[in-house]
Amino acid sequence: MLTQEVKIFQPSGSLDATKSQAFRQEIATIVENGTKVVLVDLKNVTFMDSSGLGALVLAFKTLRAANSKLVLCSINEQIRILFELTGMDKVFEIFANQEEFEKSMMLRA
């Protein structure tokens, strides 16, 4: 159902300083490929710190500059609290899971 225009990225474990550089490189590759929407599915991410959040914000800005968008799904309680404390829950479009994202994409089509 999902077209080539959507790239799903599923990090796992901790999204912190040790993984944020690799995440940024992955996003740079996605931008070069001309992907229109990047869905970051965080269901397997158990912990995120400020470095992980910074990587997401940088990815958001990078994609927006390339006329693409970044959306998130399946965030856990710790990440949701981090987003609310930093106001990022107002910046990112967050879906409950991939199915909810797919439904919204079908409505926009």
Rank of each mutant, 00 (worst) to 15 (best):
M48S: 06
A22R: 10
F23G: 02
I75C: 08
A96Q: 06
I8Y: 07
R80G: 07
T86P: 12
L58H: 05
K7L: 11
I79Y: 02
E32N: 06
N76A: 06
M48A: 07
A55C: 04
E32G: 01
L72D: 06
E5Y: 10
F95N: 02
L85K: 11
D41K: 01
Q4M: 13
S12H: 13
M105Q: 13
L58I: 07
G34T: 13
E99D: 11
M105W: 05
M1R: 09
A109V: 06
V6G: 06
Q25R: 12
V37M: 02
R80M: 05
V57G: 02
I81D: 08
F92K: 04
V37R: 02
D49F: 07
L39F: 14
F95E: 04
D49A: 03
G13F: 01
A66T: 00
S68L: 12
L53T: 01
K7H: 13
V57S: 02
S68Y: 10
L15R: 06
S104K: 13
E84Y: 09
S104P: 11
I27Y: 08
V45C: 09
M88F: 14
S68W: 09
L53F: 00
S104E: 12
C73Q: 05
N33L: 09
E93Y: 03
S51K: 00
E77D: 14
L39I: 12
K103A: 15
Q78Y: 03
V40W: 05
M105G: 07
V6I: 14
P11I: 03
E77Q: 13
N76V: 07
T3D: 12
F60Y: 15
E26T: 15
G52H: 09
D49H: 08
V37C: 10
Q98H: 08
V57P: 02
E102N: 13
K36E: 12
M106V: 15
A22D: 13
Q21D: 15
A28N: 05
T62Q: 15
R80F: 03
M1F: 08
F47H: 08
L15W: 05
G34P: 04
S14P: 06
M1W: 09
A109S: 15
M105F: 10
F23S: 00
Q4K: 11
A109Y: 14
V71D: 11
L82Y: 07
E32V: 09
F83T: 00
A109D: 13
L56W: 10
Q78L: 10
F47N: 07
S14I: 01
D41W: 04
L82V: 12
L70G: 03
F9I: 13
R108S: 15
M88Y: 13
N76G: 15
G54H: 03
K69Q: 09
Q98N: 05
T29K: 11
V45H: 11
M1N: 11
Q78F: 13
E99G: 06
F101I: 07
F23K: 01
T35A: 10
S14F: 05
L63S: 02
V40A: 04
S68D: 04
F92N: 12
L42A: 07
G87E: 08
I75P: 04
R24E: 14
L42M: 15
I75V: 14
L42E: 05
K61W: 03
F9S: 12
M106Y: 03
I94W: 10
L82Q: 08
L85Q: 14
A55K: 01
D49E: 11
K69M: 10
L42R: 03
